[in-house]
């Protein structure tokens, strides 16, 4: 397999690599080349969504992309965020601040084993960012959450706490309007 250099921005840091195989899946690039293992391999086939990362588009929008079925070179020149990049840390690496979704998931016992948590955090974070551009009407709130998180598989929790925590975050952040 041919190899080419690959440049992208991961969690705000430019990452340059040479000799990345043209057919390398992104999840392997994260795990084996960057030691970022938080984007988890669940099905390896784009079904469970445990492996999603966030791509920040030039127009200011963000979206989740499945890394297990997407090639690393798809992300050439792109800015991505992984689960490891959301929290703020001090110099010792100790977490000093979580993003609102992470915080709420922790507070509401949203996950159990947590293998799927990175996917849910990223999906819900993308939803927060989407609603920050365009708030959702209260009557549509549950549907919007279902549309955003509905493909994510969790085997432990039955989804209840992920969903209610997300709903509560969206309300608290003022992203839900009457109607």
């Amino acid at each position: 397999m041919a190899k080419h250099p690959l440049q992208m921005t991961i969690n705000g840091k430019p990452v340059d690599a040479v000799d990345i195989p043209d057919d390398l899946p992104m999840i392997d690039y994260l795990h084996e080349y960057n030691n970022l293992t938080g984007s988890r391999l669940g099905c390896g086939q784009g079904i469970c969504h445990a492996c999603v990362v966030i791509v920040d588009n030039p127009d200011g929008t963000s979206e989740e992309v499945r890394t297990c079925i997407t090639g690393a070179h798809y992300f050439a020149g792109k800015k991505i965020r992984t689960i490891e990049g959301h929290a703020k840390r001090d110099e010792q690496g100790v977490v000093t601040e979580l993003n609102p979704i992470q915080l709420r998931f922790v507070d509401e016992f949203a996950f159990q084993c947590s293998y799927c948590a990175p996917g849910f955090v990223n999906a819900a974070t993308v939803l927060v960012e989407k609603l920050q551009r365009q708030p959702v009407a209260k009557s549509q709130l549950e549907q919007v959450i279902e549309d955003s998180l509905g493909h994510h598989i969790c085997r432990c929790t039955g989804y209840v706490r992920y969903y209610s925590a997300t709903r509560n975050v969206l309300s608290d952040l003022g992203l839900v309007k009457e109607g």
């Binding site: 490891e84 979580l98 992470q102 998931f105 016992f109």
Partner: peptide, 22 residues
């Protein structure tokens, strides 16, 4: 309990699973 004692590591995608270890 306000949260799980392991919640912080888990929600930040830290290496908590054997699977994560290289």
């Amino acid at each position: 309990a306000r949260a799980r004692s392991d919640a912080m590591s888990k929600v930040c995608g830290s290496k908590v699973f054997a699977r994560d270890i290289r």
